[in-house]
Simulated assay, not measured.
Amino acid sequence: MFNYCEKELRFLTEKQVERFFDILNQSSELIQKERDQSYLDSLIETLTAVQDQDTSDLDLTADSMKKLGRIYSEFNRDDYDSETLRKGIQLAILKAIKVDDIQANYQITPDTIANVIGYIISGIFRGTDSISLLDPAMGTGNLLTALYNQLSNTLALTPTVSGVENDDAMFELAADSFEIQHIRAELFHEDAIQNVLAPMVDVAVSDLPIGYYPIDENAKGFATHSEKGHSYVHHLLIEFAMNHVKKDGFGIFLVPSQLFQTDEAKQLLKWMQGKIYLQGLLNLPSELFSNAAAQKAILILQNEGGHAKQADPVMLGEFPSFKDQKAFAKFLTEIDAWEEKDLK
């Protein structure tokens, strides 16, 4: 009986996600066609208009305004929980990426990976009465909102969240997503490498952009900057993030699996010495990536101080296929045991 109800509930939730996505999609397509603009820009306008139930700022024909009014009348915020709204927005952003052929840095962290990160954080902070998060490169805010919703349920508390994003369109999408989900957050529309006055937090978490940071002058103040040429942006963001983590707080990042196997890694490791414990590096299943060079891992760092100590052993390994539920569950059990016995 329980399984039947669980399946029924999942079906209803999926229908609600589709329903909300359909509202966003109909509106975005209508605005896109009449304005002859990108789907992404149309989605940003849609997210504001659907929340306000107001088409007056869209500057469309009277006929289009009427159509949008009918579309928006189908949306009642109280009919949806935050996670359903997040997934609907996620689908709309995925469509924008496809329709507009958007560059790779708009890609969204898959929910399976976000769930694993949330699982790790939940285990570390189980029993706590508060937790604060910072994403120094939040993009569209999907990872941060996914974690907020997950941690609210697993830890039975309201996380405090902050995010930094420099890209105009991604910041607007993130801000709208937080607002429609009724998640209070401190958001900074700035370049983190220019030393944003972000708060100190318990956990820094991010699906880090990979590549070179173009403005060498901005990178000079970072210990992880390259002595010659451009610096790796993911190195700089790790340093920025850990500088905004409290004593014995954590940094959990999606990074290239080969992070410590490049020439530039020497500078990163030198900066970590005496400041930060490398607690874990868990490769994600290789099947998720087109080739070995593209493979990513979950990096677990911890600031020294407080009750922090070097985990022994460091958690190293590779997740089994997410499709192999038995092996995947066994690996999560091993993470649980490591967090309890070796990390804490």
Rank of each mutant, 00 (worst) to 15 (best):
S130W: 05
S130K: 15
S130F: 08
I131Q: 06
S132I: 07
S132L: 04
L133Q: 05
L134M: 01
D135N: 02
A137M: 09
A137L: 08
M138F: 08
G139N: 13
T140S: 12
G141S: 08
N142H: 11
N142Y: 12
N142L: 06
L144Q: 05
T145H: 00
A146P: 12
L147I: 02
Y148C: 06
N149I: 04
N149M: 08
Q150K: 10
S152F: 15
N153W: 14
N153P: 13
T154R: 12
T158P: 00
T158F: 03
T158R: 04
T158H: 05
P159C: 04
T160V: 09
V161I: 14
G163C: 00
V164I: 15
E165A: 13
E165Y: 00
D168R: 15
A169Y: 12
M170S: 13
F171D: 10
L173W: 01
L173Q: 05
L173A: 07
L173P: 00
S177N: 05
F178A: 03
F178C: 00
F178S: 01
E179C: 03
I180Y: 07
I180M: 09
Q181G: 10
H182S: 13
I183A: 07
I183Q: 07
I183H: 08
I183R: 08
R184Q: 14
A185D: 07
E186H: 14
E186L: 12
E186Q: 15
L187A: 00
F188E: 13
F188P: 09
H189N: 15
E190Y: 07
E190Q: 15
E190H: 14
D191M: 05
D191S: 12
I193Q: 10
Q194P: 08
N195V: 11
N195I: 11
P199A: 02
M200C: 01
M200W: 00
M200N: 03
M200T: 14
V201D: 03
V201Y: 00
D202K: 04
D202R: 01
V203S: 05
V203H: 01
V203Q: 04
A204Y: 01
V205P: 02
V205E: 07
V205Y: 02
S206L: 07
S206T: 07
S206W: 10
L208M: 05
P209Q: 02
Y212Q: 10
Y212C: 06
Y212N: 11
I215H: 09
E217W: 10
E217A: 12
E217F: 14
N218D: 11
N218K: 01
